[in-house]
Design a protein around this nucleic acid. Structure first.
Length: 493
RNA sequence: CGGGGCGUAGCGCAGUUUGGUAGCGCGCUUGGUUCGGGACCAAGAGGUCGCGAGUUCGAAUCUCGCCGCUCCGACCA
């Protein structure tokens, strides 16, 4: 791994010394990322390229995300179900654009039980095909609509370049698949779920995002329209954080998903699909992390506060008893608390360990605090220390955690704003993409050749077409013709 | 898929140039002393040198092939 030379071994006072095992972001951002995911035990590499084990601490984050997002998905009327991993190749190939989009990254099973299969099976890269096959049988009447189903599962896309969480060959996600009676209803659903994603990301994960529509080039294979929420990572690159597709009737036609409408006519349904994946864990790491490691927003953090008792020889028992009592009280107050009562690790070691793991709050409890009936509360994001009386903890901590959550969001938002430039000056655009990167908001004529030219010369792509319209007199960033759209450009993963 | 780097104990590395049967630090185990920002002493455990062929009396070391990780470019949640 990284070259971790002799980094300052903890001088006095907090703040400047770094966690030893982690390469500083400024030195090598990619290495920083790899160091963080490995050292904080979020994942470990598998023997198969692009695959990984998500370790308990990483999976706990995913479970928290699932819980909070699943709630929103259900609140908007959807039900969970499960569809098969294997898809007959023939099914996947029904929708032309869909096959073409996914063919290069499909894993194919050709043998089973030692025999060559009559029909090769595709390991799902996404489940439109197999789900549509079922839907064609489940839907007959307008009374069966809307059909609102979601599934949590794994999918496989054979990737050439992989990075833990951000791009893996197998990943976990949720995919919603809905059918509607009218185009308007499908469009409404598509945008509603985009809104759910935006709310989830901003409220729970403290990640500000830019919502918008994908260009024709960038839209989902087989979709009519794709909407996206785009986040900005700390190296100035954009990350597609979630997508929501209006599939139109493309799949309904080839899979013959029809219903008899009120007017007694047989019609094709209008469909949507939408998903977010374990990639969001990567977003979480990159948006909030710093040179000391992870910084987790309290709402997502598996451990919201860790109690580190200072166990001296004389007062050890007493301190530990107080720490246990405190942990119990805080747990009852609904805080996800962990008491680090391990022997053989110095307090300083534990401080560093939990900071690296991104725990939002640390509560230090030592002999001195016993006398004054307080703990020293230390924030992960700012490092600020504050004594808090025991009696006030159950009441105050939830508020403190919420404040921290809000500060993280505002900090990320400020970073995003500071790294969003705008204008129609093409040279400036190229310069920005070359150096500080971030988002560049610009008018666009809407033609693919301008999109391509910008991409070739800047390596930046249209991340999304903004919902706001350009002004009357605005001109395309690339060709100078009259602008049809306002777009967010950035280099991306 | 193209180009570069790497693969030796859980982690970080030395050893490879010049073949002779593997070592250091951290971590781990046990016992003891410690504990308010990565403590210390002592005794231990741990390696088919990424995998497979080949050359050789003998391969971590030389040759060929493959795999994986990683970085930079073309495609994607």
């Amino acid at each position: 791994m990284g070259q971790q030379g002799q980094r300052t071994p903890a001088g006095k006072g907090a703040g400047k010394e770094f966690v030893k095992e982690i390469t500083p972001q400024a030195e090598d951002y990619s290495q920083w990322y790899i160091d963080v995911v490995l050292k904080t035990e979020l994942m470990d590499y598998a023997p198969v390229k692009g695959c990984m084990a998500i370790r308990p601490y990483g999976f706990a984050i995913w479970e928290k995300m699932q819980e909070l997002l699943d709630r929103r998905i259900k609140e908007t009327g959807h039900q969970n179900a499960y569809f098969p991993l294997f898809i007959p190749q023939e099914l996947l190939e029904k929708e032309a654009a869909h096959v073409e989009g996914f063919a290069p990254e499909v894993a194919l099973v050709t043998k089973g039980g030692g025999e060559t299969l009559a029909e090769p099976l595709v390991v799902r890269p996404t489940s439109e095909a197999i789900i549509c096959d079922f839907y064609s049988r489940w839907i007959q009447s307008w009374r069966d609509l809307p059909l609102l189903i979601n599934q949590w599962c794994n999918v496989v896309r054979w990737e050439k370049v992989t990075r833990p969480f951000l791009r893996t060959s197998e990943f976990l996600w949720q995919e919603g698949h809905t059918c509607h009676r009218t185009e308007e209803e499908a469009e409404e659903e598509t945008l509603k779920m985009l809104g759910v994603y935006q709310d989830f990301l901003e409220t729970e994960m403290a990640i500000p995002v830019i919502p918008g529509r994908k260009s024709e080039r960038e839209k989902f294979a087989g979709a009519l329209r794709t909407y996206t929420v785009e986040a900005l990572m700390r190296d100035g690159r954009a990350l597609q954080a979630g997508t929501s597709h209006n599939l139109g009737q493309h799949f309904a036609r080839v899979f013959e998903i029809t219903f008899l409408d009120r007017d007694d006519e047989l019609k094709h349904v209008w469909q949507t699909s939408w998903g977010v994946s374990t990639r969001l864990i990567g977003a979480l790491i990159t948006v909030h992390g710093d040179d000391r490691g992870l910084v987790l927003p309290p709402r997502i953090a598996p451990i919201q506060a860790v109690i580190v008792p200072i166990l001296t020889k004389k007062a050890g028992e007493e301190v530990l008893a107080a720490a246990r009592r405190l942990a119990g009280e805080l747990r009852s107050a609904g805080i996800r608390i962990h008491l680090d009562d391990r022997e053989g690790y110095s307090p300083g070691w534990k401080f560093n360990e939990w900071e690296m793991k991104g725990v939002p709050l640390r509560l230090e409890l030592g002999p001195r605090d016993l006398q004054s009936e307080q703990v020293i509360a230390v924030r992960r994001d700012s490092g600020s220390k504050e004594p808090l009386p025991w009696a006030e903890l159950p009441g105050k901590l939830p508020a403190l955690l919420e404040e921290l959550q809000g500060d993280l969001y505002r900090r990320a938002q400020r970073y995003q704003q500071e790294h969003t430039r705008s204008g129609a000056d093409y040279d400036e655009f190229l310069r920005v993409m070359e150096r500080e990167r971030g988002f560049f908001v610009a008018p666009w004529c809407g033609r693919e050749e301008c999109e391509l030219k910008a991409k070739e010369e800047s390596k930046a792509t249209i991340r999304c077409i903004a919902f706001e319209r350009p002004e009357e007199d605005e001109r395309c960033l690339v060709c100078g013709e009259k602008a049809a759209e306002k777009v967010y450009l950035a280099r991306a993963y």
